[in-house]
Amino acid sequence: MNSLKIANLQASIEDKSILHGLTLEIPKGEVHAIMGPNGSGKSTLAKVLSGHPDYEVTGGSADLDGENLLGLEPDEISKLGLFLAFQYPMEVPGVSIANFIRAARNSRLDEGEKVKAVDFYKELYEHMDELGMDRKFTSRSLNDGFSGGEKKRCEILQMSMLNPKYCILDETDSGLDIDALRIVSDGVNRMRNPDRGILVITHYQRLLEYIIPDFVHVMVEGKIVRTGGKELALELEERGYDWIKQEAVA
């Protein structure tokens, strides 16, 4: 029950099959990493689990603490406790970060109830301080004109404020310099706890030096083809993906 459990998941976009029976279980308290070559379906997995309307699920199951995710609206999945940190966070001009996060928090309350402004800002500022974000950020339009690093910090800020049960970080390291990578990773590490499962999707081993995973999975052509400990990431860094692809085919 206490896990994000994906079994034999199959999904396609515009009749092109991408996930070919993917099985993976992320219990609370663990950090899992998925690595894999470009085009292996890593980001598709993140979007399918979040309920992206462009993808069609053709088989298998995905359950969050025993609740079926497949077929739910993205906002319903979010409210069940799944958070996706986007590879490319969308820009929403005119909507301030503070108002957006507040609206997201309010969406989790009963109708008519609202978060208290004073408590909200106190909490928001604490998390911003941790992430080294200037307080002026609260009034900036969401991701509008942000640098790559600012966008990723803003994702982690939202993740901290929404207190999800499961986090999926999709290529969070892309476009970050070392300093930003450290700050973002620290933010994720602060969220590690026995009540939360984390899935880190990455192309490079570099991120996993900062966010040390309990398990590393290798994804090739829409399936997990190998699972190991954190040392598997190093092996992939040294040897590339070709040997695994060949093994997978063989």
Partner: peptide, 9 residues
């Protein structure tokens, strides 16, 4: 989709 992922209808 991005905004819905945060819980907004």
């Amino acid at each position: 989709f991005y905004m819905q992922q945060r819980g907004l209808g």
